[in-house]
Design a binder for these strands. Structure first.
Length: 506
DNA sequence: CTGGGGACGGGGCCC
DNA sequence: GGGGCCCCGTCCCCA
């Protein structure tokens, strides 16, 4: 019996030892497998990064090759064809802003725009669009008819210039998934591999997008041949002999209201009134991911700066150099819904906010452009950074909508009979105006410039009279009273409507 | 649904 | 011709 007990005890101890050994072995195996698994995961991640990088490089190389091919085709056109690489951009603040432009830096702590309008930057929304404006001169065509064409690298981005023939406004389409090709963009991708969007979207600072623009004239040669381009319905339709003056004069100024509309001062030199910040090249977005359906209130906080640049053809025409400002303010995404541009006369502001265009650059394109040499020679447009096509793409999108607007303007011109008096043309939509102020005022619709700022609510307006009207909101001024019921209104028309509806029988 | 009101663009007038 | 101002129409939002 005692032996039996001892035996059982020994068996139990042996079992315990064996169990412990088994557990230890299992744990060892699990640890080994886990280590191997982690190693495999790490290697897989590395491979993914490498593959991703290679994919991006392949896309960039392919896009550059396509651009090169297109550019060669364009540069091999007959001498009558003028290739204008318009709206080449200086962007990201790394390009020098010249030609009278004042770099305005948003001071820290002075936030004149709301923060609820993020400029979202999407890595995958970079585009590969190269737009080349072609102005083909042909005196035989209708005088004053100017034709511009923009060719896009990506057919999904390109405008169909022949839509002008069919009378259908060209529709710009965007593909936010196009791979960016900008070197800096690629650098950013590499640096933030894994979560580039998160990094880029964290940018909430105001972006300044600049493009320098020059328009070329050679006497009457700025007119183009719409028929040869198949664009007979596009372009402005001036009467023969009439002189049309595309207006490029946009002054960057910032005017604040001090409650009295008569007291307005330009704040362009005053940093406290500035509203444009320099872009951080290191944080340069690969593209602008835009939003649609912004409210009107959001529109008021939109701004960006675009300096447009025309080009000189080899004959050396007269150059009209000027600048246009498109303000990207606060977090508001610069959007431009080209489709709605012809919709109604009030959609321009929304158009700009609906602008949906990714930013992408291509140094090859910039350096190989036949106009690039001219640009380099011109002191007005120097130091075009590698991001210049960011702005160019932005501005080309403007042009996309401009073609439709131009077609609309032409249709209006065909029906209106007093186009002779409207000598001042909008450089964006070719709409004619009778005086310079009107066209300058109108062009703010396209540029988004809002130089008149309300000090009460920081809202900005493109027109002083609008600011004046807006101030009544704060002052509560209701100077127009109904003689029948005593109800007061801020504007006369409200009183008139009120009286028509409520007291028409009196 | 309706009215009030804000915002905005075009046109016209006046100085 | 430039600048300012006003009027008007339209869109949109909101109560």
């Amino acid at each position: 019996m005692a032996n039996c007990m001892v035996f059982h005890t020994q068996i139990a101890s042996i079992m315990e030892v064996l169990a412990n050994a088994a557990v230890a072995e299992i744990c060892k195996l699990v640890d080994d497998d886990y280590a191997v698994f982690r190693l495999e995961i790490t290697q897989s991640r590395k491979e993914n990064r490498v593959l991703r990088r290679k994919l991006l490089e392949l896309k960039v190389a392919r896009e550059r090759a396509e651009r090169t091919m297109r550019e060669r085709v364009l540069t091999s056109r007959p001498s009558s064809v003028k290739i204008l690489d318009r709206y080449r951009g200086i962007s990201r603040g790394e390009g020098h802003l010249t030609g009278g432009h004042r770099t305005i830096v948003k001071p820290a702590g002075h936030n004149t725009w709301r923060d609820d309008q993020p400029i979202t930057v999407d890595e995958g929304s970079g585009t590969s669009t190269q737009h080349i404006i072609i102005i083909e001169s042909a005196e035989a065509a209708g005088p004053g008819v100017k034709q511009e064409r923009s060719e896009g690298e990506d057919p999904r981005h390109s405008r169909d210039i022949h839509t002008g023939v069919s009378g259908e406004p060209p529709v710009a389409t965007e593909d936010p998934t196009t791979t960016p090709a900008h070197p800096s963009a690629r650098r950013s991708i590499t640096e933030v591999s894994g979560t580039p969007n998160a990094v880029l979207k964290s940018e909430a600072e105001t972006k300044t997008l600049t493009v320098t623009h020059r328009l070329l004239h050679k006497g009457s040669d700025h007119r183009s041949d719409p028929e040869r381009l198949g664009l007979g319905r596009l372009g402005c339709p001036p009467a023969p002999g009439s002189e049309y003056l595309p207006v490029f004069h946009h002054r960057q100024r910032m005017v604040h209201s001090h409650g009295d509309s008569d007291v307005l001062d330009t704040g362009g030199d005053d940093p406290s009134y500035s509203y444009v910040t320099k872009m951080d090249p290191g944080n340069m977005p690969l593209g602008l991911e835009t939003q649609t359906g912004l409210s009107r209130g959001d529109r008021n906080n939109y701004s960006s700066s675009i300096y447009t640049e025309g080009c000189l053809d080899k004959k050396g025409e007269v150059i009209v150099v000027d600048e246009v400002t498109v303000k990207v303010e606060g977090d508001a995404p610069p959007t431009w819904n080209a489709d709605s541009h012809l919709g109604d006369g009030h959609s321009q502001g929304r158009d700009f906010l609906d602008y949906r265009e990714s930013l992408e650059t291509d140094l090859n394109v910039a350096t190989r452009s036949p106009l690039h040499s001219f640009r380099d020679q011109n002191p007005v447009s120097t130091s075009m950074g590698p991001s210049e096509s960011h702005s160019r793409v932005l501005f080309d999108e403007v042009l996309n909508s401009n073609d439709r607007a131009r077609a609309q303007a032409q249709r209006r011109g065909a029906t209106s009979g007093n186009i002779k008096e409207k000598r001042f043309l909008c450089m964006f939509c070719n709409k004619g105006f009778s005086c310079l102020q009107k066209v300058e005022r109108h062009q703010r619709v396209h540029t988004g410039e809002k130089p008149f700022s309300c000090t009460q609510c920081e809202k900005r307006f493109s027109r002083q009279d609008h600011l004046k009207m807006h101030l009544k909101v704060h002052t509560g001024e209701r100077p127009f009273a109904c003689t029948h019921c005593g109800k007061r209104f801020s504007e006369r028309r409200y009183l008139r409507i009120h009286q028509q509806k409520n007291h028409s029988t009196l």
